[in-house]
Design a protein around this nucleic acid. Structure first.
Lengths: 247, 247
DNA sequence: GACCCAGACTAACCCATGTTAGGCGTGAAT
DNA sequence: ATTCACGCCTAACATGGGTTAGTCTGGGTC
């Protein structure tokens, strides 16, 4: 991994390069963004439903989710977010948050003032397009989850989610081959997949029993990637990753 | 209803005014967009998964959905679209469609060349922002559906969907108070809500029995809007409609 | 080293929803 | 008129996954 990508701006640039081709001035402008760093503990809200934040939240370390609490106290998790991603770009254009952003693990984020981002997209239309693209990919992921929760079995959903997180982590150069940490409890997996904790547990054990994955604690090892993809009906097209040379 | 809004460009402008405040030059530019009109029959695909279209599709009349077919032949419908809406703005930035767009009823649409739209958003940043906003609202609706399919009961889901479509039709001035046509079979409702046709039928009958709605054919009459909202756990905040004066 | 707690895991039971299979009514096509 | 197709509706039965109510384990803390 290139050392420069370990910096806070580097992570962002690495992520943006998955989405669009960046010119040198564009990279320089991204690298010059003002950032207010903040560490967060696990299970903390970074943005609340109903807020109208004046900053966007870039993740540097840790595992984040977007979620909403429903009328009867149930929770639905909409997406997981990884280092390098901005969780709430949307509030540049939709001022009031219709959902919350919370941490699953401890970590660190950088708050970037809306004013700085607006200035950036005014000066660099290419970056505006990349941001728009990023929110469109978010939407594509929502659609895929919708298809999963609506029409896939619990086994397919869980296998699919593992495939997705693994693929995205790989695309950000954050993990080595086949092994990664999924700092998420089984209850949280259930909230993401529309399942009960008990059933998540049952299914995970099935996947292990069938030799698709192994796990110790939160460390997950993919034993059989082709069969896991097949079990999850996983096709990464919806992630719209730019094909990268030399992989 | 203002007569000019019945024209193809009028419908689009009416929709855009739900999303953003438009200046007169912006309205004029929208009104000057080139459009290729096309009538479509019911249950026809307007855009196919895997295509890389060179035009966007504006609906003028009829009821449209976005959907995807999954591995085992099941279908998931992601959203319904109403006259005035552009179904595939996203393909301006994500060239390959990761899902299909199909008609539920017969109707008419207008194809607008990407080149014309790109030129428009280059010249009018306000329109670019409005388009971005529109796709963000799409995403908000996906999230709400995700919450519904993941965590709400069949009764809540169906009531919620009726509330949503009704609210959106009203916001576009397309229907009078309390009555509207929902040109969707029960099987299609099931595909949208992650339910079987049989169960959709059961639940609809419950809603009628409990006096929340009545229906003759596809015409739906809302008998008790407050109770229907409550039954569907419906809060329209996620639609991000601009509050409009004089309603 | 005793205590606590969160989270993984288990077991028994149950229900919301799915599946299968068919009937009925209406409108379009022949 | 007859047929066909499609969509609404019903009934009987099956099951995936939910609910409840735990036990067990390992890591942190006093």
């Amino acid at each position: 991994m290139d050392g420069s990508f370990a910096s806070q701006h580097g992570r962002l640039i690495r992520k943006m390069e998955n989405i669009a081709v960046l010119s040198e001035p564009e990279k320089a402008a991204l690298a010059a963004l003002p950032m207010r760093l903040k560490d967060f503990a696990e299970h903390t809200d970074l943005v609340h439903e109903g807020d109208a934040p004046q900053e966007c939240c870039l993740i540097l370390e840790g595992f984040i989710c977007r979620y909403k609490l429903l009328g009867q106290g149930q929770r639905q998790i909409f997406s997981f977010h990884l280092p390098g991603e901005i969780t709430d770009l949307q509030c540049l254009q939709l001022s009031v948050m219709d959902h919350s952003v919370g941490s699953l693990s401890a970590g660190r984020c950088a708050y970037i003032p809306h004013a700085a981002l607006r200035d950036l997209i005014d000066r660099f239309p290419g970056i505006a397009v990349a941001f728009w693209r990023d929110t469109l990919i978010d939407a594509a992921i929502f659609r895929e989850w919708l298809a999963g929760i609506g029409r896939r079995t619990a086994h397919q959903r869980i296998a699919h989610l593992i495939c997705e997180v693994y693929t995205r982590l790989r695309s950000l150069d954050l993990i080595p081959d086949r092994v990664f940490d999924l700092p998420v409890t089984q209850a949280e997996l259930g909230d993401a997949l529309g399942l009960s904790t008990v059933h998540v547990n049952r299914v995970l054990q099935d996947l292990r029993r069938n030799g698709l994955i192994t796990s110790k604690g939160r460390r997950l090892l993919i034993e059989d990637w082709p069969r896991l993809q097949e079990a999850g009906d996983f096709d990464p097209a919806y992630l719209h990753l730019r094909a990268r040379e030399g992989r």
